[in-house]
């Protein structure tokens, strides 16, 4: 009996060790680092001080960066849900051979490096890129629109990178849906649209929630895509931390930025989770 009881711990020990060594330990070190001080003259000093947090939380420059990052992540999550949920439903309703083919089409981009895909967007969205050439050529726009180094451009590129996570997560929850439930709704006199809104959507909520959390956290901590499409003009938090670490050499300040981002994200994720789970309690059980 005792052997049985210890078995789960034994089985999860390797993963625990790996996570402790490569995740928990660096996190604790970053946390400690964020309380140290730094000056150009002295470098990093192992004193305990809240100066870095005072700077991050009090400086308007950082407020702008955090606000922008939040807006970007929220916009990306919203657009990804608008595109991903119908896409997942269409996949769900497809017949066997087509379903796997289109799932592959959706997952395919995940096999290509984020940097390559984002550079692709840079080519498409640039001043002389294909999108602008098309829009001006067709006479829809008089002058090329600015996509590069704008929030719109960053949102478009990030949605493309992250939408597969939304599709997969929603599709997984749709697979648990009893097909007879939709038929029941129709037989009771509901239109197809009403069935989708009143019956399918609420039951897809767990998937939409999970997908939103994945997309939001990945968008909020994204580095490569904002760096290429947004550039230095539209800094996000991950880039600000990168700059403190590598350009200013101010590691403690960079660490404080990272810790604030982490705490903010955990707060948002947990809060959001609470609200949606309470609202759709029955679906989650």
């Amino acid at each position: 009996m005792t052997e049985r009881r210890h078995l789960p711990y034994g089985l999860s020990a390797p993963a625990t060790l790996v996570l402790t060594a490569f995740m928990a330990a660096p996190l604790v070190m970053v946390l400690l680092l964020s309380f140290h001080t730094f000056t150009m003259a002295t470098g990093i000093r192992p004193e305990v001080s809240l100066a870095n947090y005072v700077e991050v939380l009090g400086d308007g420059y950082f407020h702008t960066i955090f606000g922008r990052t939040f807006l970007l992540a929220a916009a990306v999550t919203g657009v990804a849900a608008l595109i991903g949920v119908p896409e997942a439903y269409i996949i769900h309703r497809m017949r066997p051979p087509w379903r796997s083919i289109f799932l592959l089409v959706i997952l395919g981009p995940l096999l290509v490096s984020v940097v390559v895909r984002t550079l692709g967007w840079a080519v498409l969205l640039g001043r002389n890129g294909i999108v602008n050439a098309g829009l001006t050529g067709l006479g829809i726009l008089e002058r090329p629109a600015e996509f590069m180094f704008t929030m719109t451009g960053m949102t478009v590129a990030l949605v493309h990178v992250l939408v597969p996570f939304m599709v997969l997560s929603v599709w997984t929850s749709l697979r648990r849906l009893d097909p007879a439930v939709e038929a029941a709704g129709l037989s009771l006199g509901a239109s197809q649209a009403t069935v989708l809104r009143r019956i399918v959507l609420p039951q897809a909520m767990p998937g939409i929630l999970a997908g939103s959390l994945i997309v939001f956290t990945l968008a909020a901590s994204a580095f490569a895509t904002p760096a290429i499409v947004g550039g230095r003009r539209l800094k996000v938090v991950a880039m600000a931390a990168y700059d403190e670490f590598l350009n200013s050499q101010n590691w403690p300040l960079g660490a404080a930025i990272v810790v604030v981002l982490l705490v903010a994200m955990v707060t948002i994720v947990v809060g959001y989770n609470r609200i949606v789970e309470r609202r759709y309690r029955q679906v989650f059980q």
Partner: peptide, 18 residues
């Protein structure tokens, strides 16, 4: 189907869980 005015009890009952 939604205009036939037919009541159906499905094998799985197909109740709306939410």
């Amino acid at each position: 189907p939604n205009r036939r005015n037919i009541g159906i009890v499905f094998q799985s009952f197909a109740l709306f869980p939410h």
